[in-house]
Design a protein around this nucleic acid. Structure first.
Length: 272
DNA sequence: AAACAGGGGTTAA
DNA sequence: TTAACCCCTGTT
């Protein structure tokens, strides 16, 4: 087992793991335990630092996952375009946008549509336990299944996990990935509008899911995913219409759109 | 107790 | 532009 220490500057566990970007981390008494890629991890906040226990031998893996190379002080400054944003940035000041695996993010956000976070987490957990690989560590932790792992999973099999009408989307998604119609590498070679076009060809991937996948797994920070909460706050505070929320956000925030979206979403969602 | 609304959307008409 | 979609939870 390995131990790594991270600075808690612009980083805290609750903001990062509970801001809605990921579905595989569970909190118990302030300790967050979960899986990233092939590795298990357990995060704790100690005095002035974040401590991680993991079966992963190199810290670089987690540095990348936690977006540690980026200076969030600059990001926050760029997001703070008005008093509301100053408040939102203050509120979610410990958020880091995780660099998650492409296939996991794609599948998870297809499942997420018109669902609630506890429900999404439960589906994803079952999916991993049933089709993922057990991780060699203490406790019961599983990798997220690869497309290959899901090759022979039927619509009915998916339905048993509780994904409902999204089951056929998942079957087709797995097939598209296996057929090479879509891959992380291919998307990385495209500019944002072209990559969006490719992703949205997938059945069950619309505007919002597409933006989340690109923001959370492909580091496309120029996107501003617009869900009901973001539409709400954009209408209330920025004079947007529901239809214009996404475009307005991207125009206002440019290449920090994705960060601004997370601060705003997290803030607005916890304000009611 | 049973009915109902609504949840980080997308599709098809 | 609008209803229907699965399924779970919280509210009446």
């Amino acid at each position: 087992m390995n131990k790594f220490i991270f600075s808690d500057k612009d980083f805290n566990l609750k903001d990062t793991f509970d801001c809605g970007q990921c579905f595989r981390w569970e909190e118990t008494d302030g300790v967050y335990e979960g899986v990233a890629g092939a590795y298990w991890g357990r995060f704790k906040e100690t005095d002035g630092a974040i401590e991680l226990e993991t079966n992963c031998p190199d810290k670089i893996f987690w540095m990348n996952y936690l977006d540690m190379e980026r200076d969030y002080t600059d990001v926050k400054k760029a997001c703070s375009i008005n008093p509301l944003m100053v408040q939102a940035v203050e509120y979610g000041g410990g958020i880091r946008i995780l660099k998650q695996e492409f296939f996991e993010t794609l599948v998870s956000f297809i499942i997420s549509q018109r669902s609630s976070i506890p429900k999404i987490k439960s589906c994803v957990k079952k999916l991993c336990e049933k089709y993922g690989r057990k991780i060699d560590t203490e406790g019961d932790f599983y990798t997220f299944p690869t497309a290959e792992d899901l090759k022979n999973v039927s619509e009915e099999d998916f339905r048993v996990l509780g994904v409902g009408y999204r089951a056929p989307y998942l079957v087709r998604c797995v097939k598209s990935v296996l057929d090479g119609e879509i891959s992380e590498k291919m998307l990385n070679g495209l500019d944002t509008p072209s990559a969006r076009e490719v992703l949205m060809k997938l059945h069950g991937v619309g505007d919002k899911v597409c933006d989340c996948v690109m923001l959370f797994s492909l580091a496309r920070f120029d996107l501003f995913p617009s869900d009901v909460w973001i539409k709400r706050v954009m209408c209330e505070q920025f004079g947007s219409s529901e239809a214009s929320a996404k475009a307005d956000g991207e125009r206002l925030f440019g290449n920090v759109s994705g960060f601004a979206q997370q601060y705003l979403f997290y803030y607005r969602r916890n304000m009611d």
